[in-house]
Amino acid sequence: MADPEKSQEDERKSPAFGVVATLLGVFAFIVAVGVFFSSQYYTSPSGTVVAQSLGTTEVNGQSMPHVALNFQTYPNSTGSRNAQGTGPGSVPVHSSGSDSWPAYGMSNVFQVPAHSLVTVTVHQYDSGGPLNNPWFSKVHGTQDGTATVTTPDGTSSTVSSWDQNNIGHTFTVRGVPGYDPNFFLSVPLPTNADLPNNEGSASNQDNGQSYTVTFSFISGGKGTYAWNCEAPCGQMVAAFGGVMSAYGFMSGFIHVV
């Protein structure tokens, strides 16, 4: 408020420039804070996982790079346990207030070269149940439309679909609008129901007991692709909420470069 005693003189030289500069500074600061927080969410804390190169291979008479990508699912996302496979050792997930949300690890952001054969190996430790949409129990978009499943006791089989009542998660990739919109890949990850600790327990992971799913696909054109899980792996009515709607657990990106 104006203090009538203090400011009897007329309009002083207006410090508009200083005020505008201050406001712009504040604006820039707020944007910077926002960018900081959002960039934390955008890139996983353990960084983008770059696929390991396996040289080149020939597919349908065409020579193309061959790369490998390994990751796993965690039943208990807040525990900081050593990951299986390659990469740095901590679990790159965010705690959003729930102790029992499942998550993918190593990272939720992957990088693969364009138009190359990508061989993916997933270690699936989590329990599961029936799918909402049986369509996702089938393998879509991999080489030959199949995936290889290795059970904990070591038996391997090549499948094009899995029992729709025993799915833990799915690995489903689609092109974001504008980047190869027809690219689509979906692989069911069988439930770990056969394992001794099947109720979403982390001890499977300690025992190294997992279903291992291996499949290959040919990556699309350069750009960003989104992936997420299409199995209702949350709890109760929030089976498709909670963990599924929180960034960093059941979804991420694949950068094709």
Binding site: Y179, A246, Y247
Partner: peptide, 10 residues
Amino acid sequence: AHSSFLSPGT
């Protein structure tokens, strides 16, 4: 069209 400024959740 596909900015990496913000993640979808943010």
